[in-house]
Design a protein around this nucleic acid. Structure first.
Lengths: 214, 214
DNA sequence: CGCAACGTTGATTTGCATCAACCGTTGTGG
DNA sequence: CCACAACGGTTGATGCAAATCAACGTTGCG
């Protein structure tokens, strides 16, 4: 969902006027809880957004690539930032403070509508995830994600986009359980695991049917 | 989050021009999967939005009261409706077709920004829920909800806003488990269950501490 | 009155988290 | 350049929260 690719040149220029760009090294935080609310737009690289509950393990919210934005909840709700955002690569992010982005939105309805579309889409995905977490097993969620990744890459062979630890967190499970489920899918012959994060879907039917029953 | 209460009179009038109002009886559906996308604004009564997964039980998404809107995902994403919306009471809802609401949004930035704020807030809640489903027990989620309801009603005594079945669905559990957890909270003396949906919080400290450990 | 939906309690099963040990890789500083 | 730490990943053993299946009581509505 690269937001800014879909904006008109004119709108993009207006947004750029309000923004200022910064580079981040891998592992450096773009923002943390307590920071001033701001809207951030990824230019180059990837940014991981996550939550760190009081007593619990890191919860991955999403990973953003070029053209995508983050930090809108704090800006729009005028509430304290309560997420972490960390650069996964050497990254270029432009940031816009609350006042400025509100000005842009008031002035450019198309920017507001585009953001609205993106956030609405994210909400749908989050609701899907809530359904999945209560109604489907880890294996079913994993299969869904593998099929999605294959579809996205346009091939039965692809690389997992993040560490298995992060993928596990994203799927609402642990690294151990994810590892077991991947192995068991490989044992049934539905997929093949290569070196690193390589995955190949060998039998989509088997994968899907497993997703229904298992 | 009553959206339309926060709009200016002028904006509200513009929206009203694009809308047409209909009454629904209790149990009547406002929309169903396959219907034309449209934005719906609740005027009177309550509307329940839920999903019905292929092989699974009803998943409650949210219950909307006066001033709140629904159906935005299908309108904005231009995708088929995939939720159900049913009137919980005798209800008055006004609906706006896709074309008309997009016109309004393009013309009235404040309407778009207001919707954006609401959707963004819902997204935060959904992300919270995802965290809760993976990181917290049913009892902890239940306690959180009870405290929220008490806070909302401004009193330690209140009525559950929906059936226990719906509450269970909303909390991502089953009616049986919810019943057990409520009983056990009563046994510890943290709450008292009255007739119907009455609940009284007797010992907030006990409730909170249980929510941390249990 | 009688049917449906709601609600409760009990018995049983199970998916998954947790704890723990271990291996390969990466990167870092002495 | 090697040693060692840190991290990612896998595998095994164990315990438990919660789903499921089942039976029954309760409420409310046509």
């Amino acid at each position: 969902m690269p937001l800014f690719a879909t904006l008109s040149v004119d709108d993009r220029q207006r947004v750029a006027e309000a923004a200022f760009t910064r580079r981040y090294e891998r592992g450096e935080h773009v923002f943390q809880p307590g920071d001033q609310p701001g809207l951030y737009i990824v230019h180059v690289g990837r940014v991981k957004v996550y939550r760190l509950p009081e007593s619990g393990t890191e919860q991955l919210i999403r990973i953003l690539g070029p053209g995508e934005f983050l930090g809108e909840a704090a800006v729009l709700g005028d509430i304290p930032v309560d997420h972490f955002a960390v650069a996964l690569d050497r990254t270029e992010v432009c940031s816009i403070d609350r006042r400025s982005i509100l000005d842009v939105l008031a002035e450019r309805p198309t920017v507001a509508v585009t953001m609205l579309q993106t956030v609405s889409h994210r909400l749908s995905e989050a609701e899907q995830m809530v359904s999945s977490l209560t109604g489907r097993s880890v294996e079913q969620r994993l299969v869904g994600e593998l099929l999605r990744l294959a579809h996205e890459s346009g091939s039965a062979q692809f690389q997992l986009p993040s560490t298995k630890k992060d993928l596990a967190s994203y799927l609402g499970t642990t690294a151990e359980t994810l590892s077991r489920r991947l192995s068991s899918l490989q044992d049934t012959g539905a997929i093949r695991l290569g070196p690193g994060r390589f995955v190949e879907i060998l039998d989509e039917q088997a994968l899907r049917s497993g997703a229904l029953s298992g």
